[in-house]
Simulated scan of single mutants.
Amino acid sequence: MRRTCLLYQGDRPIPYLTAWQWQKELVGERKQARREGKDLADVLLLMEHPAVYTLGQGSSLEFLKFNLDDPQIECHRIERGGEVTHHAIGQLIAYPILNLDHHQRDLHWYLRQLEEVIIQVLAKFGVPSQRIQGLTGVWIDNAGQVQKIAQVGIKVSQWITMHGFALNINMDLTGFNRIVPCGITDCQVCNLNQFVSNVDFVEVKKAIAQTFAETFNLEMQFITSLTTPDL
C-alpha cells in the first residue's frame, strides 16, 4: 500500500520566510505526533520564491560577493547542509516533509532519491542529466560545459526531512553572479528553457509531483491550504 503524501502547490510566489516557517511547523507536528504514538502523512510543498539567498548552517561567507548588510538583498542562514544558493521566480522549489521511518533511514539514499526525481523529470522533457561524484545536485552537459540545473540541500531531524531541491526552469540566472554557487569555483548554472523551448512551468511542476510519488511510492492527495486539520 502506498503511503499518503499531501501535495501543496503554490500558485503564486511564497516569501521564503513563510515557507521556512511552514516547514518547521510541519516537522514539529510530526515529531509531536510520533511522541503521542500517531503517524501524520508525508507532505510535499512545491512553490516559487521571490529573489533570496540562503546559506547552509555551516556555509562560508567567503562565497558571497555582496554585503550582508545590503538592505536590497534578502539572505538567510538556515538549517540545511551545503553552501550558499539563490532562489528566484522561475525556479521550482520542492520541500518534502517525509518520515524516513516509512522509507529508508539513510541520508545518502535520500539525497540520491531526490536527485533521481530531477533526473527522471528532465528525461521526460528529453534532456539528459547526470550526477557528479562527491557533489550533490544535478548537472547537464551543455556543449561540452557541465552546468548545474538543480541544487539539493536537506535537513533531517529524528528522521523527518525538511528543505529539499530547487530546479532552474526559466529564472533570471544573473542572481547567481553575486555568489559562488554551492561553494564551487567556476560553477556554471543553467535553465531548463535553454534546452526545451517554451517549457511550461506548470507541466514541470506536474511532472515533479508525479515522479516524486513514483520514486517514493506515495499516493498524492492534493490540498489547497496548509491549515488543513489532517496536516
Rank of each mutant, 00 (worst) to 15 (best):
D186T: 06
M1W: 08
L40P: 00
L218R: 11
A150S: 15
H103L: 09
L46F: 12
L64H: 01
Q120L: 12
Y8K: 01
R3H: 14
E219D: 15
E219R: 13
E214T: 11
I179W: 00
F212D: 01
R35T: 12
Q21G: 11
I93C: 11
Q194L: 07
I154M: 00
Q72I: 06
L192D: 14
F125T: 09
E115P: 15
V152P: 02
V202H: 07
S197K: 12
A94R: 03
F63M: 00
N217M: 03
V204K: 08
L100M: 13
L167V: 14
V121H: 07
D200G: 04
Q104S: 03
G144S: 05
L45M: 13
V43G: 06
S197R: 10
D172S: 09
D172E: 09
M162R: 04
N217H: 13
Q145K: 05
F195I: 04
E83N: 15
F222A: 08
W22P: 04
K24F: 08
R112P: 02
W139D: 03
D42S: 06
Q130D: 08
E203Q: 15
P13E: 14
L26Y: 05
K65H: 13
R3P: 07
L226S: 04
V189W: 05
L55R: 11
F216P: 02
Q151R: 07
G82D: 14
V202T: 09
G137D: 05
K124C: 01
M1A: 07
V156H: 02
N170R: 10
G183A: 07
G144M: 04
K24D: 12
F176Y: 14
H86A: 06
A150P: 01
G175C: 08
